[in-house]
Nucleic acid binder design. Structure first.
Lengths: 152, 152
DNA sequence: CACAGTTGGTCACAAATGTAACTATCCATT
DNA sequence: AATGGATAGTTACATTTGTGACCAACTGTG
């Protein structure tokens, strides 16, 4: 038998690490707000850019349009975001956070950043080169140019 | 507004990279054999250890028992693995690859290793420290001690 | 300005995954 | 050896996700 040690295999390791980190991260926004990952991504994107179409959110947060559509609806029902028709293109809607949504965003962001900081601090001096290498890896696997991807 | 750039946020980046790598990796086993990720993980584990219970496979490949159960059934229907009752514990079954399963395994493994090698080569000298740091990260996020996790 | 092809968004359906209940067996204690 | 609790594995059900069809509105070409 040729040998491949699954636990050493890079795609497997990356997936496990990403899943574990996301799982831990859930403790940041889960308990208080009970968001799903797609909802978190939409919130984060709108917090970052103020106003955006669903299409643009999907591009920026790497989610398929149906995922965005559902997350948007969920956030709308929660009264965290509002839609208004676009003037230039009446197919699309411009989405913005409501005051309530902004409040939640402002609550979560510092916790998210603290979570990330803590993680990087635990890595110590290795964190800097790690981030650089991840950047290169992103280019190699063409993370930038993918259509409907996945989770945080 | 406080700011968090989603595209720079570590959990998000890890997820995207992992998803992209897995997606690319699919090209290794997908076209020829049309496996799912859970099936691939079971195959890889049995290829690595010859004979194993479903429970042990789940532990080693970080999958929930129902995922393992379904993947095992699929591989069994494909005639890639066989079950036999365990002597010591009649609740569990010992799973092994059939000749056909071994053949597929031996076909896929070199491609998988080549895929990984290619990825690491593209990273060049950064690949070595990356792997080390991933090891540390695995410990920090306690990848080792999780129950029913996820994908490669 | 009419028509063909494209695009933003939603919905219905299918496939995949997680959760909980259940069966059979094991193990420990009495 | 009988009972109570754990454990391996499967199944049924709920939830999430992906796929494709669809509608309305846009764009370009003639």
């Amino acid at each position: 038998m040729a040998k491949l040690q699954l636990e050493q295999f890079l795609p497997y390791r990356l997936n496990r690490i990403a899943a574990a980190v996301s799982q831990d991260f859930r403790s940041v926004y889960g308990p208080h707000h009970d968001l799903t990952i797609p909802e978190w991504r939409v919130l984060a994107t709108l917090g970052q850019f103020e106003a955006m179409s669903a299409k643009a959110i999907g591009r920026h947060s790497a989610m398929h349009k149906t995922k965005v559509s559902r997350a948007v609806r969920a956030l709308e029902e929660r009264r965290w975001l509002r839609r208004r028709p676009s003037q230039e293109d009446r197919r699309e809607e411009i989405l913005t956070l409501t005051t309530l949504g902004q409040k939640a965003y402002l609550e979560i962001v510092p916790k998210a950043l603290a979570f990330e900081r803590r993680l990087l601090e635990q890595l110590g001096p290795e964190s800097e080169p790690l981030l650089e290498t991840l950047g290169r890896l992103e280019i190699i696997v063409k993370v930038a140019t993918r259509a409907g991807d996945d989770e945080t």
